[in-house]
Simulated scan of single mutants.
Amino acid sequence: MRGLDYQWLEALDTVVINGGFDKAAQVLFVTQSAVSQRIKQLEKWLAQPVLVRETPPRPTAVGRRLLGFYRRVQLLESELHPALAPDGLDAPLPVAIATNADSLATWLLPALSPLMQAGRLVLNLTVDDESRTLNRLRSGEAVAAISSEPTPMAGCISDRLGQLEYLCVASPRFIERYFPDGVHGAAMTRAPAVVFDQHDDMHGGFLAERFALSSVNWPRHVVRSSEAFVQLATQGVAYCLIPDLMIREELACGELVDLMPGQGVVRTLYWHRWALESGLLATLSQDCISHARRVLQQ
C-alpha cells in the first residue's frame, strides 16, 4: 500500500492558504487538474474527504489534523536546513504563535526580543482570546499558544506561566458621571464598558458574579486592542478590566482609579507547544516561560 505522499499535503495546504484550486495551481506551477488530482488521491488514501468544497474551500476535521502535521514538518525542515547548509548561514526561522492580546501588550515581546535581535526568527502572531488560542495550535496555524486552558492536547506539553490580575478601572471624570453614588448594579447597566470581541466572557462573568447582571443588560464597546482599552478608560469614555501590569503609572498618578479594590479578576496562563520541539523552538519556549514567570504573579 502506498504511504502518505507529501505532495498531496502540499496541495491541500496551498488550496487552504490561497482559498481555491486556481490560485493553488499558480503557486505550485501546476495545472488546476493536477492540484485536484492530488487532493482526490489523498482522499482516496484516507477513504474520507479532507476539504469541504465551498468558496473558499475549508478543511474537514481530518484535513485540519493533516495540515497541523504538515506545517509542523515544514517547520522542522526549516530548522534543519541551516545546519546542513555548506556556508553554515542561519536563515531566520518563521514562527507562528497564538497569543491573547494582553500577553502581547505586556510580557510576550520582551521575552522574544533577544531571539529577534539576533536575527534568529521572524514572527507571525495570531491574536485571539486566551480561551480560543489552542484552536490555532490544533489546526497547525501556530506552533505555540498562550492559553487559559491548563490541559495540553495530545502530543503537546503545557507549562504554567503565571497569573494576570485584571483591575476594574475608570477615570475620575467617568466615575463622577456614572458612579456618583458608588459602584452598584444599577450604575453598571448605564456605564459603557469595553470588551475584546463578541466572545469575550470575562467582563460578563465579572458583572454576573459581582452584580447578578445578565450578559445583555449593559452597554459595551467592542475593541480588539489592549492598548485601546487603556486609552478609552483614560479618555473618560468607558470603564474596563485591564491587567494591572499595563496601568501602574496611570494608577499611581490618579489618571485611573481602581473601582473595586480587591475584587478584580485573575487569569492563569499556560504555554502550550508540541512535545517534539527542539533547537530554536525549544529555546523560544524556554525564554518565554522563564520571562513570563519573572513578570507575572506566581
Results as ranks from 00 to 15, higher is better:
Asp5Thr: 00
Tyr6Asn: 12
Tyr6Val: 12
Gln7Ser: 12
Ala11Glu: 01
Leu12Lys: 00
Asp13Val: 02
Asn18Arg: 10
Gly19Pro: 11
Gly20Glu: 08
Asp22Arg: 11
Phe29His: 13
Phe29Arg: 12
Val30Glu: 03
Val30Ala: 04
Thr31His: 00
Thr31Glu: 00
Ser33Leu: 09
Ala34Val: 08
Val35Met: 01
Val35Thr: 03
Gln37Asn: 10
Arg38His: 12
Arg38Met: 00
Ile39Phe: 02
Val50Gln: 05
Leu51Cys: 03
Val52Gly: 07
Arg53Phe: 12
Thr55Asn: 14
Ala61Cys: 01
Val62Cys: 11
Gly63Ile: 00
Gly63Arg: 02
Gly68Asn: 08
Phe69Gln: 06
Tyr70Trp: 13
Ser78Arg: 06
Glu79Arg: 10
Ala83Cys: 07
Leu84Asn: 05
Leu84Phe: 09
Leu84Thr: 12
Leu84Pro: 05
Ala85Trp: 05
Pro92Phe: 08
Pro92Lys: 03
Pro94Tyr: 00
Val95Phe: 04
Thr99Tyr: 09
Asn100Trp: 06
Asn100Ser: 14
Ala101Asp: 11
Ala101Val: 05
Thr106Arg: 11
Thr106Val: 10
Leu108Ala: 07
Leu109Phe: 08
Met116Tyr: 09
Arg120Leu: 13
Arg120Ala: 05
Asn124Trp: 06
Leu125Cys: 03
Val127Thr: 10
Arg136Ser: 15
Arg136Tyr: 15
Ser139Cys: 07
Gly140Val: 01
Val143Gly: 02
Ala144Tyr: 04
Ile146Cys: 06
Ser147Gly: 01
Ser148His: 05
Pro150Gly: 03
Asp159Ile: 08
Leu161Ala: 01
Ser171Met: 09
Arg177Cys: 01
Pro180Gly: 05
Pro180Lys: 04
Asp181Phe: 06
Val183Ile: 15
His184Ala: 12
His184Asn: 15
Gly185Ile: 00
Arg190Met: 10
Ala191Phe: 06
Ala193Lys: 14
His203Trp: 13
Gly204Met: 03
Leu213Gly: 00
Ser215Asn: 14
Val216Arg: 12
Asn217Met: 12
Pro219Asp: 01
Val222Glu: 13
Glu227Arg: 11
Leu232Tyr: 14
Gly236His: 04
Leu241Asp: 02
Pro243Asn: 07
Asp244Gly: 03
Met246Trp: 00
Arg248Thr: 09
Ala252Thr: 08
Gly254Met: 03
Gly254Leu: 02
Leu259Ala: 06
Met260Pro: 02
Gly262Ile: 00
Gly264Thr: 06
Val265Trp: 08
Val265Glu: 11
Val266Phe: 04
Arg267Asn: 12
Thr268Cys: 04
Arg273Gln: 12
Leu280Asn: 07
Ser285Asp: 13
Gln286Ile: 03
Asp287Gln: 13
Ile289Lys: 10
Ser290Ile: 14
His291Gln: 07
Leu296Val: 10
